[in-house]
């Protein structure tokens, strides 16, 4: 059994609880032990770097420091935005000067030896795919999905070091293993508006609508994501999009762990899929998946 330090991040304790729940369940099923980083703090997300470089580096660095204290080598991060910040600092820590300064801010040294990987990476290695294939209880029965990776999982490639920034394939491979039909579309890493929904809702509605339109045109019945921010923008804003533009997408938005959980036999209820603001259960029920 492999053991990972698990950094849920703030969203997974709030608006993206279903991501946290499904992530823990599928990891357990696949034999990955997740140990939540003790006393973790917010990575600073999309705000810290807006105003201060050293805050943007030090907040995530504290979490790496905590993992080092736990004696673990690898940290897996479900949230793409948290992953980007944590991975960025783990790269920056290779520079001794930066490392010293961060140490000064933290009031204690951090080595940066912890490997940071996104949960979607942890769960899409060939080993895990093979394992999952043998454990499928409810194949996804040709559910047509568009995989949506968002900005920060793969970009910038020098930092993210995960998959490729144009047309990534990790989630696609997993979903095909689960019996999904992955539609071909071209907006896998287009931005949904990220942290702007509160301050500039108009922009987020516009960008999210473009994504939903493209996914629908590509024939997708649902969008699968690995980022709580993307999920929130796409899932919770469909009502407003209808109000503003008249488009009624009714497009369910899943976390990839939810679909993995379903295929492994967990009931939708247990995976908290009912938490979505855009109804996802009807689609699943129609396919006998919930």
């Amino acid at each position: 059994m492999s053991t990972y330090a698990y950094y849920p991040g703030c969203s997974l304790h709030g608006t993206a609880k279903e991501y946290d729940r499904s992530a823990r369940l599928v990891c357990q099923a696949l034999g990955l032990e997740l140990r939540e980083v003790e006393d973790w703090n917010c990575c600073g997300a999309s705000s810290a770097h807006m105003v201060s470089r050293w805050l943007a580096l030090s907040l995530p660095a504290r979490n790496l420091q905590l993992v080092e204290k736990m004696g673990l080598e690898t940290m897996t991060v479900p949230c793409a935005a948290c992953y980007a910040r944590l991975k960025d600092v783990s790269c920056e820590l290779k520079d001794p000067e930066v490392r010293d300064k961060i140490g000064r801010v933290l009031g204690g040294q951090v080595t940066g030896r912890v490997t940071v990987e996104p949960l979607v990476g942890t769960l899409t290695t060939q080993e895990i795919l093979d394992k999952a294939a043998g454990m499928i209880k409810k194949p996804l029965a040709g559910l047509k999905v568009a995989t949506y990776y968002g900005c920060l999982l793969t970009r910038p490639p020098k930092v993210a070091q995960f998959d490729v920034p144009e047309n990534p394939q990790s989630m696609d491979r997993l979903l095909r293993v689960l019996g999904s039909e992955v539609v071909e579309w071209y907006f896998k890493t287009e931005c949904c508006g990220a942290s702007l929904p509160v301050a500039r809702t108009d922009i987020v509605l516009d960008l999210s609508r473009k994504l939903l339109t493209a996914a629908k045109k590509a024939g997708a019945e649902a969008i699968v994501t690995a980022c709580p921010m993307c999920h929130s923008n796409l899932d919770s804003r469909q009502g407003e999009i209808r109000g503003r533009y008249g488009d009624d997408f009714k497009m369910p938005i899943f976390f990839f762990t939810e679909l993995l959980g379903l295929a492994l036999g967990y009931p939708a209820r247990e995976l908290l899929i009912a938490n979505h603001l855009t109804d996802a259960l009807s689609l699943l029920q129609g396919r006998g998946l919930a």
């Binding site: 999309s46 770097h49 900005c151 920060l152 970009r155 910038p156 490639p157 920034p165 890493t189 287009e190 931005c191 508006g193 990220a194 942290s195 702007l196 500039r200 922009i203």
Partner: peptide, 11 residues
């Protein structure tokens, strides 16, 4: 202020 650092440009 509107840049959300989506990293498309840098990539």
């Amino acid at each position: 202020w509107l840049c959300v650092t989506c990293q498309t440009c840098y990539t």
